[in-house]
Simulated scan of single mutants.
Amino acid sequence: MSTTANAVATTRGTRIRPRHPVALRIGLVLAALVSILNALPAVTDIGLNGTPWDAVVIGLAVLTPAIAIATLVLLPFAWMGNRRPAVWVAALQLVAILGLLPPFVLVFTDGLPLIAPLSAGITILLELLFAWLIVHGAAPRGDGPGL
């Protein structure tokens, strides 16, 4: 193949050598692990009690396993250095933050212990870190100065 064909194949194809493959893979592994750990209580601990929060509980019982499944499906493609699946995994981590917002409201309305919003806040920071690791690690080499 000529250099022009290589350039076209590199830009059209999704496999580009990532700038920091170690950061990408650490972010992917941790994102998958946290996605699975977030999905387990949402599926196994559904408690409907007739309050207005039941719709949120059902929404989270659907959203968090869907994020975990999508993350696991995209993981092998992103692991090989494909940028688009990696960016999608990072975006899913940002969407997963929505499932961590109810403790901040419930601490004031239902008397939830203070540890719940604290742990949710720590998890939000971790989700942001994982998304940054993935996006930063998946950036193609030769892009100029990195983040």
Rank of each mutant, 00 (worst) to 15 (best):
M1P: 12
S2D: 11
T4N: 05
V8K: 06
T10L: 09
T11E: 10
G13Q: 07
G13F: 03
G13S: 06
T14K: 14
R15I: 10
I16N: 10
R17G: 14
H20Q: 13
H20V: 15
P21E: 08
A23T: 11
A23W: 01
L24P: 01
G27I: 02
G27R: 03
V29K: 13
A31K: 13
L33P: 05
I36H: 03
L37H: 07
N38F: 08
N38H: 05
L40E: 06
L40T: 02
L40F: 01
A42S: 08
V43F: 00
D45P: 00
N49L: 03
W53F: 07
D54I: 05
A55H: 08
G59A: 04
P65L: 05
A66L: 15
A66E: 13
I67F: 01
I67K: 07
A70C: 13
V73M: 10
L75Y: 10
L75N: 09
P76M: 00
F77K: 07
A78M: 04
A78D: 04
G81V: 07
N82K: 15
R84S: 13
P85W: 01
A86S: 14
A86I: 02
L92H: 11
L94A: 11
V95K: 05
V95T: 08
A96K: 07
A96H: 06
I97D: 09
L98Q: 09
L98G: 13
L100H: 07
L100G: 03
L101N: 05
P103N: 03
P103M: 01
F104N: 11
V107K: 10
V107L: 04
T109N: 06
T109P: 02
D110T: 05
D110N: 06
L112T: 06
P113Q: 08
L114F: 15
I115S: 14
L118K: 11
A120F: 03
G121F: 09
G121W: 04
T123A: 13
T123F: 08
T123Y: 04
L126A: 13
L128P: 10
L129M: 14
L129Y: 04
L129P: 08
A131S: 11
L133D: 01
L133Q: 09
I134H: 06
H136I: 12
H136A: 15
G137W: 01
G137Y: 00
G137L: 01
G142M: 10
G142A: 10
G142R: 08
G142P: 09
G142N: 12
D143Q: 15
G144R: 15
G146R: 15
L147D: 15
